[in-house]
C-alpha cells in the first residue's frame, strides 16, 4: 500500500543470522515487508524459508538449539529486543504452520481458544460470531457448521489446514505468516484460500511461503527468493518473475533446478 506515494514498511529485517546449534541456516538476511501486501517467499526445500518465517513471531525461541541474531523491526520496534513481550507479539502476528496442527479439541474450541485467552468476546453470542466469521473466511463454514462440536482432528487434512487458518485469523492479527497453507489442499480449496488471502490483505499484512510458482505469481505483490540460507533476490513479484537480476532466480522460476 502506498501512502502519498511512499511504501509503508510493516516489517524490516536487518542482518538476520540464524543458527541451529553450530549449523547456520540463514545468512545476513535483509528484507522489507510492505504493509497490507502479500509477500511470497520462494526457494528450494531446506533453504530456510520456514526458519525466516518463524523468526518473525519468535517461534524459534521454542527450539532450544536455535539462536537468532540481527534486528527484526515490526512497526519500528525490534522484536529481538529483551523488552519485547512474545505473548503480545504473537497475538499480533498469527501463524499457519506447514503441517496442520489443530488442537485435539472440538472445531469450535479450536477457533475460540485465541479469542478466549485474549478476552476478545464478552458473551457467548460474540464468540459464536467470531467462530462463524473466522470459519467463513477460511472457506470451511459450509463443511463444518453441523459438526462444530466434533473433534477438529477428525477433519480431513485439507479441512484441518483451513481450520488452522481460521484459528489464526480469529484474533485479527496485524500480520499473518503462512507456511505453505495450500500444500494439502485440492485446487478448489486452494482457489478459495487464494481468494481469502486477497481479501485478508485489506486488513492484514501477509507473508506466505509457497512451492508453487503459479501461486506466488497469482497472490503476491512482492517476492523473496531464498537459496541455501541466503536471500538471493527480492522485489516486486512482477519483476522477479519477468525480469530477475540473478540467474539463480531465473533458473529456479523456470524450473531448471530446485
Amino acid at each position: 500500500m502506498k501512502k502519498n506515494g511512499i511504501k509503508m514498511i510493516k516489517i524490516k529485517a536487518k542482518n538476520v543470522d540464524v543458527f541451529y546449534g553450530k549449523k547456520q541456516a540463514l545468512y545476513n538476511i535483509g528484507l522489507d515487508i510492505e504493509e497490507n501486501q502479500v509477500t511470497a517467499l520462494i526457494g528450494p526445500s531446506g533453504c530456510g524459508k520456514s526458519t525466516f518465517l518463524r523468526c518473525l513471531n519468535r517461534m524459534n525461541d521454542v527450539i532450544d538449539i536455535c539462536r537468532v541474531k540481527g534486528e527484526i523491526l515490526i512497526n519500528d520496534f525490534n522484536i529481538n529486543d529483551k523488552s519485547c513481550d512474545v505473548v503480545r507479539l504473537r497475538e499480533k502476528i498469527g501463524m499457519v504452520f506447514q503441517k496442520p496442527n489443530p488442537f485435539p479439541k472440538t472445531v469450535y474450541e479450536n477457533i475460540s481458544y485465541g479469542p478466549t485467552i485474549h478476552g476478545m468476546a464478552q458473551s457467548k453470542q460474540e464468540m459464536d460470531e467470531i467462530v462463524e466469521t473466522s470459519l467463513k473466511k477460511a472457506a470451511l463454514w459450509e463443511e463444518v457448521k453441523d459438526r462444530l462440536h466434533e473433534p477438529g482432528t477428525g477433519l480431513s487434512g485439507g479441512q484441518q489446514q483451513r481450520l488452522c487458518i481460521a484459528r489464526a485469523i480469529s484474533v485479527r492479527p496485524e500480520v499473518i505468516l503462512m507456511d505453505e497453507p495450500c500444500s494439502a489442499l485440492d485446487p478448489i480449496a486452494t482457489a478459495q484460500i487464494e481468494e481469502l488471502i486477497d481479501e485478508l490483505k485489506k486488513e492484514h499484512t501477509i507473508i506466505i511461503v509457497t512451492h508453487s510458482m503459479a501461486q506466488a505469481a497469482r497472490v503476491s505483490q512482492n517476492t523473496g527468493f531464498f537459496h541455501l540460507g541466503q536471500l538471493i533476490e527480492h522485489g516486486s513479484t512482477d519483476k522477479i518473475f519477468k525480469n530477475p537480476d540473478n540467474t539463480k532466480t531465473q533458473d529456479y522460476i523456470t524450473g531448471r533446478f530446485g
Binding site: 517461534m59 521454542v62 504473537r90 501463524m95 504452520f97 485465541g114 485467552i117 485474549h118 488452522c164 484474533v171
Partner: peptide, 20 residues
C-alpha cells in the same frame, strides 16, 4: 510439539500452553 507451537503461536503464554 506441534500442539505446543500451535498454542504459543496463538499468543498463549507458556503457562497457558502447558495447563490448557
Amino acid at each position: 510439539p506441534s500442539i505446543r507451537e500451535a498454542a504459543l503461536a496463538m499468543g498463549a503464554s507458556r503457562m497457558q500452553t502447558t495447563m490448557h
